[in-house]
Write a protein that binds this DNA or RNA. Structure first.
Lengths: 193, 193
DNA sequence: TTAATATTAGCACTAGGTACTAAAACTAAT
DNA sequence: ATTAGTTTTAGTACCTAGTGCTAATATTAA
């Protein structure tokens, strides 16, 4: 190994790590951080097939643009594959490492819950439903990579209240079940506050 | 108004709309779309204080990077303000329109659930806990802008099982309560699969 | 000492701009 | 129609964060 600084291999390993945790660093900043010339950094990126800063930023923007929308935005969590409005519905959610705890690869409950909630809302009417009460059981842990299949069924309707059961399975094995009480608002004439 | 094409005002209105729905368009593409020179587009952007393409992309990337992380990533949902490990904890989550349904401004259950789940996990130990069973009640709707204050308390411990109650309030009014059963893994010696 | 590998340097070129000046075209009012 | 004002177009120099290339210099291993 060289006496001045670290070896090429080590530098490239560090480079990968650094850019993974912060994709917003320029070659110049990297060259200063590693005490090498800017050309060395560029050769490293070439070898490791890491795109330039602007491409990296664009990738982050494009990837997360849709991700945030589907998580945070108005859309359903998971892919809607069947819907009989007012009666039943199904959705599929393909999980990956980003849904899970790093150490255990166990998918966080919030994502399973989000899929269940959103299919429950979808079978009623996404725009005007609010969750009232949910009675939830996680039967088995879900791991990153598992494909979650959620089934929702409306069991009772009373006025603007809907009772919806949601079951989620992974390879025929039930991992979640929950009863959702949804209350629909009358957005048209509800200015009596 | 000019006979060739549209007025300046209309073009600028359209420009704002277009860039809002798709921030990834270059000045050149815009100049072609509006049948004006590239300089006109740049003058328009200057007047409307719209940054250049690269800045726009960077903004999208930076905004969503943290959002996705806090929603999707390993961190806690909400801001941890108090923690007595193994006993109790508190967190605050400030909501905005992005947490809510567009039409009703009602905050989605998944976000409230995520805050509750993550404070429950935090009081045990974020790295090795998994949610087992949750018994949930939403007492009152939460609206965009509300500040959610979550309190978690460990009520019972039995082996690697923990019972945690979580209450969430908005201005002293309880909006959520839930009982979480957390099961901690022994990641050190769990290779007996 | 020689050969191979790693690093640095320099140059031309690129996209997608900014900042500025100047000319041309269109519009409205007298 | 002429003048004044606004709007649009054109062109130049400059910027960042690069690519792609060639060539020279260091460093290391045999």
């Amino acid at each position: 190994m060289s006496r001045k600084g670290i070896s090429k291999k080590d530098r490239q390993d560090n480079l990968l790590e650094k850019l993974h945790s912060d994709p917003f660093v320029t070659d110049e900043e990297l060259s200063e951080a590693f005490h090498v010339s800017i050309q060395t950094i560029r050769l490293d990126r070439l070898e490791l097939a890491i795109p330039e800063l602007r491409e990296r930023i664009k990738n982050v923007a494009e990837n997360n643009y849709s991700k945030v929308k589907s998580l945070h935005g108005g859309e359903i969590v998971g892919e809607l594959i069947d819907l009989d409005l007012g009666k039943s519905g199904m959705s599929i959610l393909e999980t990956d490492k980003s849904f899970a705890f790093e150490k255990t690869d166990v998918v966080k409950g919030q994502h399973i819950f989000a899929q269940a909630e959103s299919i429950a809302i979808a079978v009623i009417d996404a725009s005007v439903a609010l969750i009232g009460v949910a009675n939830i059981k996680y039967k088995n842990p879900v791991f990153a990579g598992d494909k979650l299949i959620a089934k929702a069924e409306v069991t009772r309707t009373r006025g603007n209240k809907y009772f919806v059961w949601v079951f989620i399975k992974v390879k025929q094995v039930e991992v979640f079940r929950g009863k959702f009480l949804l209350v629909s608002f009358n957005t048209d004439n509800s200015k009596e506050d």
